[in-house]
């Protein structure tokens, strides 16, 4: 079977001065939980948006399951954006129906189970929920799918520590050797234990792609500490 994600020479330039992603070549295997790490403005979100077809690359190619980004890849990629993208007037249950209708890999039982353990009322309207709860709803939708690739853009930034643990547990419980999870974050310490591999980005360039155990074995420090050293101001 081919690699899950193959990125070649990927570049996104908003204009001559602003190159958000600069000539990245990267292959992501299946069955891994991968951290996408880098300071603000290093191009993490731009890369993620290109993986999901929300941004058109200036140059280079992306292949997911061997296919260019399109209808087929979107059916297999579960994406958590870094913002609230659900209409406020909709009820949680309506959004559930929406996902059920459009994504063949969406499991309603799993979604209902997660809503219950998170204590979210399916009858509530989105704009009646707190910011953190909205994020939980969005994460619940993503993790209720049986996708090949989960792309989570800053999934833990806005939620409380208890929810953070729940999210980590959900990602672990959802683990599937055929699927990979790509998590972008700058809160490395919180998720370090669940990561297999890390990608460091800086100024839109790929700085490092290695395993967490490699960093710990080679440098004798946590990824978090190593990150602080590499990106020290």
């Amino acid at each position: 079977m081919n690699e899950l994600v193959e990125i070649a020479g990927l570049t996104k330039a908003y204009d001559a001065q602003h190159v958000a992603v600069n000539n990245i070549t990267l292959t992501l295997p299946r069955g891994k939980i991968i951290g996408l790490l880098g300071p603000n403005g290093s191009g993490k979100t731009t890369l993620i948006k290109m993986l999901n077809g929300l941004l058109t690359p200036t140059q280079g190619t992306i292949r997911i399951n061997g296919q260019a980004v399109g209808v087929e890849t979107k059916a297999r990629v579960a994406y958590l954006p870094d913002r609230t993208y659900l209409a406020g007037a909709k009820k949680v249950s309506e959004i559930l129906n929406y996902f059920c209708d459009f994504y063949a890999d969406f499991s309603r039982e799993r979604a209902m189970g997660m809503l219950q353990s998170l204590g979210i009322d399916p009858g509530a309207r989105m704009n009646a929920l707190s910011k953190g709860t909205k994020e939980k709803v969005q994460l619940m939708l993503v993790m209720s799918r049986d996708a090949d690739l989960y792309v989570l853009d800053e999934p833990i930034a806005g939620v409380d520590p208890a929810a953070r643990d729940y999210i980590m547990r959900t990602i672990i419980n959802n683990y599937n050797p055929q699927a990979s999870v790509l998590i972008s974050t700058h809160l490395i310490g919180d998720i370090e234990q669940v990561l297999d591999e890390v990608i460091f980005m800086r100024y839109g360039c790929l700085l490092l792609y290695t395993s967490v155990d490699n960093i710990r074995a080679q440098h004798g420090k946590s990824v978090d500490a190593y990150f602080r050293e590499v990106f020290a101001c």
Binding site: K32, D165, R169, I172, Q193, L195, D196
Partner: peptide, 8 residues
């Protein structure tokens, strides 16, 4: 899950 670490 109990240890909150990666299954791999």
């Amino acid at each position: 899950a109990a240890a909150a670490v990666n299954p791999n």
